[in-house]
Design a binder for these strands. Structure first.
Lengths: 329, 329
DNA sequence: AATTAGCACTTTTTATTGACAAGTGCTAAA
DNA sequence: TTTAGCACTTGTCAATAAAAAGTGCTAATT
């Protein structure tokens, strides 16, 4: 357990370092704490022993370690209310009744990304939570057509397919068959339902049933399991820990492109705001991800803010809280 | 007009510099050309006077200028056939009859991006070339619904909208009205047609006609004028001219995000392969864009490869030619 | 008239040095 | 328990020097 003073010192170091990425020395702190620098040095040494602080070299000031940030977030941080101006900007978006929820979220995250210089992400629910609402087929020319898949949460996916020697009528019948028999099924399970419930039926009256079945089967199989929207990809370049390190940038960008890894954001089922610091983020040692789930009517998903480990935790958590409240209302 | 030898020297310098971004000195060339370095120096000075070469500092070797690359591309470059292995990889994609054209293109451009470490782009036709094929509305819950717009070229756009106190029946009628009266209109012009042809009609039998009209009006007004797919965004980071210059990276990434600027790729109507070097690319002085239009049946668009000015022109042009051929077949 | 050898001159790159600033750890005194 | 004091480390910055790469020009050569 840390003493009062140690808490104070750790908090000061974390907040100073977040403001400006310069290791914090004992001298500045001694002034603030009204004790000698030697005392501060002793305390800092203890905090380092506990693994909460680090040095960049033998005679440098201290920098928070990953555990230090963790401790700060869990025990020391005081949530920061959003300032009036920022709040006002967001309220304009939230008050706009015309917008669909997804647009509201996207626009507000765009604003947050611009205010903070962090990258933001919206994830729709995963495919096993999405139910097939309806499919539509729009013929484009003799051979090709577009298949549209709409889920109960309003997510849309489409795919062009080619079919030879299949009549419009046969397609229409199959489509309404699917809409009647399979709508309401989780997207995940549609492929198998197609096989066992649709394939046998269309086998009877569609000449090229094999081809037709295959086309639909693939459409659902390729259904990307996630609806991902990343806002402010390049904001990462504004952060000093990345702007001088192309390898890091490459790594982070590749992880963002690679949707699989974004799923790691959605791992746990906690409904509160969660903070993944450094290594925990699974993206990069210097990256922190702060996320929360949201639910509004039948729409649900996750919003996340991705920034450097040296992130303004108090501010971002405050913002996410505000976002979540407004979305759910 | 350049002499035989000057052509040779310019070609050598460009190709050497493309292989490795090190200014080329007279010594290396003298060995290849079997003449003294002094002779080469004289020729290089002439080429510099003509604006085809540049120095990075008073006593450095030479580097191609923008005009130098231009001259190389227009006069000196010998197209390079793709190697068998690369060709084979692409053939697998092109031979796959199952795939819709857009998927074929995306997959093959992914391969090309990986082979070359350049960014690739597919642009669909612009909105004034796209005709409205059909719209569909799928209700999600009492208030919200998804509007789907399909164009004659199979491009799909969707948008969630909210409507209060509008019956399903009213919506259905309006939708079929639009499909009957406006299908076939260029997307660009749909908004105005809605106003003059649909609004007056629904005004008669839809209670909340103002609201309904507004919703559809916005859907078409927000229609993003372009279908853009960027593959291998981060490949730019592999190029030495960018990997040490965060400002450049930022600039290029922002230009890519900003769809307007991609339109500049589509500016001219030339059907051949076009090369935009450096400043001409409108993206960055150190960027080259090589693009071509393609047309297959009623689908058409543009594919482009974006790389450093120091791009392997002979290889990329060869690849684009091959792509174009295969797409159009 | 074209080519080449030779050399002075520039600029970049790299390493070395020294001085200074920032900060620590430890010891001994308060 | 706190603090003053001091030796010690490390990083940063500027100055200097030497080496490497390459040029332009002049004068000699082919």
């Amino acid at each position: 357990m840390l003493t009062e003073r140690q808490n104070k010192i750790l908090k000061l170091i974390v907040e100073r370092y977040i403001k400006e990425p310069i290791p914090v020395g004992s001298k500045v702190l001694s002034k603030i704490l009204k004790c000698s620098s030697a005392t501060v040095r002793n305390e800092m040494a203890s905090l380092e022993d506990m693994g909460l602080l680090e040095k960049t070299h033998t005679s440098s000031g201290r920098v928070p370690s990953e555990a230090g940030y963790r401790y700060y977030v869990d025990n020391l941080m005081e949530l920061k209310k959003m300032n009036a101006e920022d709040m006002f900007k967001l309220q304009i978006v939230f008050k706009n009744q015309q917008l669909a929820l997804s647009d509201t979220i996207n626009q507000s995250l765009q604003i947050i990304s611009d205010m903070t210089n962090y990258t933001t992400v919206v994830l729709g629910g995963s495919s096993h939570e999405n139910l097939l609402k309806q499919i539509e087929v729009v013929p484009i020319d003799e051979e090709s057509m577009v298949v549209l898949i709409v889920t109960d949460k309003g997510h849309v996916e489409h795919k062009s397919i080619k079919l030879k020697d299949v009549s419009t009528d046969e397609i229409k019948k199959t489509v309404s068959l699917i809409n009647n028999l399979i709508a309401g099924t989780p997207i995940d399970e549609v492929s198998s339902k197609l096989e066992f419930e649709i394939k046998p039926i269309i086998g009877n009256y569609v000449k090229q049933h094999e081809q037709l079945y295959n086309a639909f089967y693939h459409v659902f199989n390729d259904y990307s399991s996630h609806d991902v929207n990343i806002v402010g990809r390049t904001k990462m370049l504004e952060q000093p820990e990345f702007s001088n390190n192309v390898e890091k940038i490459k790594n982070v960008f590749n992880k963002l492109e690679n949707k699989e890894l974004l799923n790691s954001i959605e791992q746990d089922d906690d409904n509160n705001i969660k903070v993944y610091i450094g290594e925990e983020s699974k993206i990069d040692d210097d990256v922190t991800v702060i996320k929360t789930k949201f639910k509004n009517g039948n729409e649900e998903g996750t919003i996340a803010i991705i920034g450097p480990k040296r992130m303004e935790y108090d501010r971002v958590v405050g913002m996410l809280e505000y976002m979540k409240e407004n979305i759910e209302r």
